[in-house]
Amino acid sequence: MTTQILIAGFGGQGVLFSGKFLAYKAMMENKEVSWLPSYGPEMRGGTANCSVIVSDTPVGSPIVDKPDVLIAMNLPSLDKYEDAVVPGGIIIVDSTLIARKVKRTDVKVYYIPATQMASDEGITTLANMIILGQLIRVCDAVSDENLEASLKKVVSARRADMLDLNKKAIELGVNYVG
């Protein structure tokens, strides 16, 4: 099985970071994995996205043109990539920042107010990990076990205090039922 995932949002939302965590999580489950960032002349506030592929077999092209799963963390990302998702695929929407509904009727859609939830919990910078938790819930690319081992790979030792907060954020997303 191969799952092609596209995580898209504003620069500064932690799109690349959550993708890196996902890639580590998959690698530590002995899956094949690739992670590719958009690296245009992006800046804070501009658009950013990353392609993550999780597979049982070696990854061919690392580019995700037709995602099985799209995480849209802002409206421009949903506008840009909604039509690219494969029929039967999954779209996960941060419903705090995206007011409109998904137009496609041939995909599964999950709305989660990740930015609002992050704000309510006092972890405003971690909406990216909350929405990633929802991905873990609704798609079987990776499991929700052993989050900490993978988090330790991406959270620098100097920011050890962020470990528990990231874990909490992911769990919020895993447990959220819209």
Partner: peptide, 10 residues
């Protein structure tokens, strides 16, 4: 190429 430089893999 740019892809090989920018992508992460194990």
């Amino acid at each position: 190429d740019g892809t090989m430089g920018q992508m992460m893999e194990p």
